[in-house]
Design a protein around this nucleic acid. Structure first.
Lengths: 229, 229
DNA sequence: GGGTTTCGTCACAGCACGGTAACAATGGTC
DNA sequence: GACCATTGTTACCGTGCTGTGACGAAACCC
């Protein structure tokens, strides 16, 4: 899962550094500029996942930047959060109507800003906000029904998918065949225990890549487990 | 374009009536309740497009309602705006982290609330705001009822249009046949599951262009999805 | 090492699932 | 009314998935 890319447009250097520092700490990839035109260039050449935009930056107004981001096809749907010292309702509404996705008034705490950013990202790109489960080099998206290893998508059958999901929801934990039957096949299923072995093999086969270790661990006389982090 | 459906959960009757009145005026379809459990029922039986949720309603807390909305698969992705008298940063962050999409403190002006609602909706379901959605090389204009692929217009039947629109509002996500029937045909429809297959085929046919991959993905034993970004 | 238990692997039969075409019913248009 | 577009249903077919038993390999115990 690539780090979400933020573009911070802010001319208060001290504030910009603080925000940048905090977001870096949260695993974001942050670029900063204090100039509206430069912001548009940066956004156009490598579209960020979200823009933090000061209401008023030296030269052009933040509003104008917002409008022009929306006009450009490449950046039209990038979510924007406006930062501002003003708390007039009039301005707030104007910002939202122009196309900002959220509006945070200064002074704000970094924690709140982080919470808002991740709330917005969760909506826009679920894959960026931890909707996907990641264990080691494996990632699984339950809603898209997708599995990838080291970024490359893997073809996984239905039962193997459910099996893997169960493992990834409890990484490192050992499950007996009976427990796996209950969890993956349903508690009422009347299926041979050994059948689990076969699906374990199919799962191993499905997520195998040459030169990489098998993440499924066999625990003799106990069951199977997914290699933890 | 159907009216966006709001669910308002608020126990201050006077405020509830005011909000309801204003949103009706904006063309929204509003249902109101003052009870957390009833809210969950209403949301489950006919998923709204957005929930306005009071922080503290008689009996259960709004937070609990929020959490349970998120837990239910049907309502997990419905955006939520919390309304609250508190303005503690701690609470605000907590609400956002729990899964609310936005947070408005009382007293608020109806205008601002409307602006925030439409900002969230624009982000989550652009089609509701009458905006053109773009996913991959597909674009869909909800007001003009037009679909284009790589710029060239495509002829798409009514049902296929609604189907495609639903897919494009949730790109990448897998929907079971039952879910598609609820979302596209209406929750009360009594239609064979396999009928969905036929319309999927018709949709595929309608948006097919030679030399391009089929954007509709079949997920065996799970449903269908539109190839995400 | 011999015996026993546990696991890995394979091939196969059965069938569940999705793709497709054909058809009847409906409703709108001229 | 005749025509056309659209819709929902069904039946058939092929493919891929699933569960099982059998056999050999490996690990464990003495």
């Amino acid at each position: 899962m690539p780090a979400p890319k933020l573009l911070l447009v802010e001319d208060d250097t001290a504030l910009a550094e603080l925000v940048e520092y905090r977001f870096r700490g949260e695993g974001y990839d942050v670029r900063t500029t204090d100039d509206g035109d430069e912001a548009l260039l940066l956004a156009a050449e490598d579209a960020p996942d979200l823009v933090l935009l000061d209401w008023m930056i030296g030269g052009t107004s933040g509003i104008e930047v917002c409008r022009r981001l929306r006009r450009n096809k490449e950046t039209a749907h990038v979510p924007i959060i406006m930062l501002t010292a003003r708390s007039d309702e009039e301005d707030r509404i104007r910002g939202l109507e122009i196309g900002a996705d959220d509006y945070v008034t200064k002074p704000f705490s970094p924690r709140e800003l982080i919470a808002r950013v991740s709330a917005v990202l969760r909506r826009v790109r679920p894959a960026l906000a931890g909707e996907t489960i990641t264990v080691g080099d494996l990632s699984l998206d339950p809603t898209a029904h997708r599995v990838a290893r080291r970024g490359t998508p893997m073809k996984v059958g239905p039962t193997e998918f459910r099996l893997l999901r169960h493992f990834m929801e409890h990484p490192g934990r050992v499950f007996s065949r009976g427990q796996l039957l209950d969890a993956v096949w349903g508690s009422g299923s009347d299926i041979e225990l050994r059948t689990v072995d076969v699906h374990i093999r199919r799962l191993r086969q499905a997520i195998a890549i040459p030169g990489a270790a098998d993440p499924v661990r066999t625990v003799r006389s106990a069951g199977y487990a997914l290699e933890g982090v």
